[in-house]
Amino acid sequence: MTEPVTPTLLYLDNVTVSFDGFKALNALSLALDHTEMRAIIGPNGAGKTTMMDVITGKTRPNQGTVLFEGKHDLTSLDEAEIAELGIGRKFQTPTVFDMHSIEDNLLLALKGERGPFSALLSRHTNQESERIDALLERVRLTAHRQRRAGELSHGQKQWLEIGMLLAQEPKLLLVDEPAAGMTDQETADTADLLRDIAKTRSVVVVEHDMTFVRELDVKVTCLHEGSVLAEGPLDAVSANERVIEVYLGR
């Protein structure tokens, strides 16, 4: 059977996931272009997390197509294989090595052939040092490189984990509620950071904070009951009567 050809980076078509008769995803279709950032919104239970679980191989769909780069069938791969293709996921709660420095957290995450902790026992190369310097600058943590990760604010930990994902050189980042628990300034800085990242790779942001979504200034997809309810610019989606009814309220 010939795989469908698509110019998009990520292509979901007619994806359905059922748990004991409940359809967490119901014939979901979605396409994401290269270097596109997309905001995914919707009420609790809309299928946002299940969608990310399917993309990363944590959950197998009952039916449907999930293609990456037009050729990789994600439904036939495990989580490690999908990560190797260049799909990284950041959960809502930051997962960093609290007792290690920020620099060492990034060193552990660098894409390479070495075992992770052996990286800390050997001197890193000039190329690795330059990569870490660039990552620290990109996630706004250059001044904190020798601090222990556990000393960072919640927002800074979010940035560090995004930096650790970028160290793996992904083509697609899935980011779950990055603005949760942040100060107003951290929220604005995070929007700037994600916009910067989206210049070179694709980003999917699941978020409830509509102020943050507006700052991202990207196409919005609203999910409801496992399907796409509305899609387009935030103003158009926010004005949709069904979106108002099931999610935004009046």
Rank of each mutant, 00 (worst) to 15 (best):
Q127P: 00
T59L: 09
S18R: 15
H34V: 08
V17C: 02
R145E: 09
A180G: 07
A119S: 12
E128G: 00
L85Q: 03
A149G: 14
A109T: 05
K171I: 07
S202Q: 04
R250Y: 06
T95H: 10
L67E: 06
L229S: 08
R242C: 03
G155W: 00
L135I: 11
L77E: 01
H144F: 10
V54K: 04
L223S: 06
H72R: 10
V218Y: 01
G70V: 14
F19G: 06
K199I: 04
L110T: 00
P4W: 02
V54C: 08
H72D: 13
A27V: 09
N126M: 01
M37H: 01
A134D: 13
E81P: 04
C222Y: 05
V246T: 09
A46I: 07
Q127E: 14
V139C: 02
E241D: 10
E245I: 08
T16A: 09
T8M: 13
L216D: 03
K199H: 14
E113H: 09
K90S: 09
T183L: 08
M164G: 04
W159H: 12
D98K: 12
T56F: 02
I40F: 03
F91L: 12
G57A: 08
E186K: 09
R214M: 07
I162E: 01
A230D: 02
S76E: 15
V213T: 08
P233R: 14
V206S: 03
D196Q: 14
T50M: 04
G232P: 03
L136E: 01
Q92S: 14
Q158S: 13
Q168M: 12
L121C: 05
P94E: 12
V243N: 03
V66L: 04
P4T: 05
N105H: 01
R147T: 07
T200P: 08
D78V: 08
Q168L: 10
N44T: 11
M210E: 09
E215S: 15
T16Y: 10
